[in-house]
Computed example of a mutant assay.
Amino acid sequence: MTEANDLALSMTLENIRFLQEQLKKLDKEISKLLKAFSPPLTTVPGIGDVLAAAIYAEIGDIKRFKNEAALAKYSGVIWTQYQSGNFNAQETSLAKCGNQYLRYYLVEAANCEL
Rank of each mutant, 00 (worst) to 15 (best):
T2S: 10
I30Q: 06
E108S: 10
A54D: 07
E108W: 14
A53C: 05
P40H: 14
K32W: 06
A72P: 05
L26R: 10
K25W: 09
I16H: 14
K96P: 01
R64E: 03
A52G: 12
K32N: 09
L41E: 10
E113G: 11
E108Q: 14
M11T: 08
L71V: 06
I55C: 12
N5S: 05
G48A: 10
P39T: 12
Q22R: 13
I62H: 00
V44K: 02
A110Q: 03
A95W: 05
S31C: 02
C112A: 15
Y82M: 01
K24L: 10
K73T: 15
G85V: 02
P39V: 08
Q81E: 11
S93N: 14
P39M: 07
A36C: 07
T43E: 15
D61P: 08
Q20V: 04
I78K: 14
N111V: 11
A52K: 09
E21D: 09
G98M: 11
L106P: 03
T80Q: 11
Y104T: 06
F65G: 09
Y56M: 10
T80L: 13
N15Q: 09
G98S: 10
T42K: 01
Q100G: 00
K32D: 08
I59V: 15
Y56V: 01
S38C: 01
V107E: 00
L71Q: 08
R103C: 02
R103P: 02
A70Y: 08
Q22E: 15
Q100P: 00
I47A: 11
S38N: 10
N111S: 11
A54C: 06
E58Y: 00
T42R: 04
I16F: 14
D61E: 01
D6P: 00
L106N: 04
C112S: 15
Q20D: 13
E68G: 08
A109S: 15
A57K: 03
E68C: 03
S38P: 02
T92C: 01
S38H: 06
T42E: 03
Q90M: 08
A54S: 11
G46I: 05
A4W: 06
E68R: 10
E91K: 15
G76E: 09
Y105Q: 04
I62E: 05
S31T: 07
L106T: 03
M11H: 11
I62N: 03
D49H: 05
T43D: 15
Y56R: 04
L19H: 09
L33H: 10
Y105F: 11
Y105L: 01
Y82R: 02
G60Y: 05
T12L: 14
L26N: 07
L94V: 08
K32Q: 10
Q90T: 12
L41S: 07
R17D: 02
L19S: 05
V44N: 07
F65T: 09
S93E: 14
G48C: 09
E29C: 12
N67K: 06
L26Y: 13
T42Q: 05
L9R: 07
G48Q: 07
